[in-house]
């Protein structure tokens, strides 16, 4: 499944994004929300890496830092372009412009991410216009091609978004993201606003497009069953940190981090015969403005030792492509999900 020989397209190292908490008349900075707190990950060309975690864990902030919608506090974002590797993290706005076309985003809410006053043609061709493709006929041909690619009729390009259902709108958003042949597509919860029957259609479309165009996909989601369907590798985040990264089959069958185990166990299984096998994770997600000492997960972890309370675990590679940040990663045998 994961081909280790493929070159690394995106390499994120020690990414941090702190948001200041300001107080009082003088807007004094009284603390920081550590939204992203030391994230290291890589994406190979042509593969799908999913970033999963619960709300507030910093997965969207990570994605937004990578496309440089936000300026990271520190760290490196290394992207391989046509003429070598560049670190996007420190670049100022002007110098970022030529790189923007290589990274495109698909958004969560298909209702608010399309301008209701623009036709499909305007929406899908805007990225081309911005990047200097001025000829109208060229753009029309390309839009027709893109609409067909995502399963919409080219005749629709004169219509406005309100004429389309949620699933069709998401297809429009995908067509827009593909307009410039980007090397990396970042999809932030692209199916969570859709009904189940439509969700499956969009997931299949993304799998098809990837096979056809060799897309590289960074998929941000909270739904583990969706993630399992779409990705080759999965990175699990908790309070701004990546706790485990592994090839999809390994992560689901034999997780190595206690948080991954708890997360897998919490997903309701659509089979009434499995009733009552729930494993409860007590307590609440830690506050990223005031995280616990040591391992951020230790107050909720059933395997925690004294060591976990004081020392922050470092990410280590326990097998090929399998990274875990846990002191007990090598000794614990954790429960995954049964394959049926």
């Amino acid at each position: 499944m994961t081909d280790q020989s493929k070159e690394i397209l995106l390499d994120v190292r020690n990414l941090r994004k702190y948001f200041p908490i300001q107080k009082g008349f003088l807007r004094r900075v009284v603390g920081h929300v550590r939204a992203v707190d030391d994230v290291t990950l890589y994406v190979r060309r042509g593969e799908t890496l999913s970033l999963v975690g619960e709300s507030g864990c910093g997965k969207t902030t990570t994605a937004r830092c990578i496309v440089r919608a936000l300026k990271p506090t520190s760290g490196q974002i290394l992207l391989r372009g046509p003429d070598g590797v560049v670190d996007l993290a420190p670049l100022p706005k002007r110098q970022l412009r030529p790189w923007r076309r290589h990274m495109q985003m698909i958004f969560q809410d298909p209702y608010s991410s399309l301008n209701p006053r623009m036709t499909l043609f305007d929406i899908v061709s805007e990225p081309m216009l911005v990047n200097g493709i001025k000829d109208r006929q060229t753009r029309m041909d390309r839009v027709a091609e893109l609409l067909q690619l995502v399963g919409l009729r080219p005749e629709y390009m004169r219509r406005f978004p309100h004429a389309f259902s949620g699933g069709e709108r998401q297809r429009i958003g995908i067509a827009r993201a593909l307009a410039l042949n980007p090397s990396l597509v970042i999809a932030d919860e692209p199916v969570s606003a859709l009904d189940v029957s439509v969700q499956a259609q969009i997931l299949n479309l993304l799998l098809d497009l990837q096979a056809q165009l060799g897309l590289t996909l960074l998929f941000v989601a909270h739904d583990l069953s969706v993630v399992k369907h779409i990705s080759e590798r999965v990175a699990v985040m908790y309070v701004g940190r990546i706790v485990e990264t592994a090839p999809t089959p390994t992560l689901f069958a034999a997780p190595k981090h206690p948080y991954t185990e708890a997360l897998l166990a919490a997903v309701p299984k659509p089979d009434p015969d499995l009733k009552g096998q729930r494993m409860l994770l007590e307590g609440e997600v830690a506050d990223p403005a005031n995280p616990p000492s040591g391992c951020y997960f230790h107050p909720r972890c059933r395997y925690a030792l004294d060591l976990c309370r004081t020392v922050t675990p470092q990410q280590e590679e326990v097998a090929a492509d399998h990274f875990v940040s846990c002191h007990r990663a090598r000794e614990l045998t954790l429960r995954g999900v049964k394959r049926t």
Binding site: S197, V198, A200, N204, I230, S231, F252, R339
Partner: peptide
């Protein structure tokens, strides 16, 4: 058509054609 956590990864899902 529901993605299951127990299914094999990266397999296409059967879908319901059309939308509501």
């Amino acid at each position: 058509s529901i993605p299951s956590i127990e299914a094999a990864p990266r397999v296409k899902l059967p879908t319901i054609t059309g939308s509501i």
